[in-house]
């Protein structure tokens, strides 16, 4: 299995507080991984580092076959390299229609001039329709996304992520605020996606993680505490201490 992303020896501190402490992490090109950990374990900061939002004080972040260093690249550049991110709170462009949201996310050239002269082709619209179908928003294409329900916004955001066709998906608590049926659907979409790309899911809900049925990484105080199957890590004494000790 080829390694898609390799994070090694990364540390970052905010005003003396070490949010990430000598963290190392690897994920393959087509792999699902769940990251769990108590609050303040550094899950979000880890995502910030990978997506370029936060610059680490030390360490390396290596990407893809060409072993490109992601440090020093802008967020937009990293996104174009194929890192997609879904935020905890659904962030869609509420003033714009579902279709506009999806078209904006659709993988295409991102430069201002090519976008200026862009006019949607039949294939693009077809892809949007397909995605809308997948996320159950086919009837809502012309609606403003601000009018959607909370769950629908979550769907839309997942749809936008898929439209980006990223090689690595970073998903922050995808199931928050969803009905059981919606969770089911989310799980299947993520599992499906993980067949062709890497997916990293940050989640609190153990039931959801169990359903994903993948390797689990436990973060604690900014570094990896344990790694392995869910059963393996939940049997780990340290992990139990950390979770129950809280």
């Amino acid at each position: 299995m080829t390694t898609l992303l390799e994070v090694s020896g990364v540390s970052v501190s905010f005003d003396g507080f070490r949010a990430i402490n000598n963290l190392s992490f690897q994920i393959g090109a087509a792999e699902m991984r769940a990251i769990i950990g108590p609050n303040g374990a550094g899950k979000t900061t880890f995502m910030d580092i990978v997506t370029g939002k936060t610059k680490p004080d030390e360490g390396r972040v290596i990407w893809g076959e060409r072993s490109l260093s992601l440090l020093g690249l802008s967020e937009a550049r990293i996104a174009r390299e194929g890192v997609g991110r879904k935020f905890q709170k659904p962030t869609v462009f509420e003033d714009q229609s579902v279709q506009e949201n999806l078209l904006m996310a659709l993988k295409d050239r991102r430069g201002p001039f090519s976008v200026l002269f862009y006019r949607p082709q039949r294939a693009h619209l077809a892809r949007v329709a397909e995605l809308a179908n997948e996320i159950g928003l086919s009837d809502q294409l012309r609606r403003k996304s601000g009018e959607l329900s909370h769950g629908q916004k979550q769907w839309l955001e997942i749809g936008m992520l898929l439209a980006q066709e990223p090689r690595l998906l970073l998903v922050d608590e995808p199931a928050a605020g969803m009905t059981p049926a919606e969770r089911e659907h989310t799980t299947s979409i993520l599992v499906e996606a993980a067949k062709t790309r890497a997916v990293v899911v940050v989640e609190h809900d153990m039931e959801f993680v169990r359903r994903l049925g993948c390797k689990v990484t436990v973060l604690h105080e900014g570094s990896v505490l344990a790694e392995g199957s869910l059963d393996h890590v939940t049997a780990n004494k340290e992990v139990i201490d950390v979770y129950l000790g809280r």
């Binding site: 802008s74 962030t91 462009f93 509420e94 991102r110």
Partner: peptide, 17 residues
């Protein structure tokens, strides 16, 4: 309009804001 409403999100979509 995306930049106006949520600049960071547009950036994470890969657009050089």
């Amino acid at each position: 309009r995306g930049i106006r409403d949520d600049e960071a999100r547009v950036r994470f979509l890969g657009y050089p804001v």
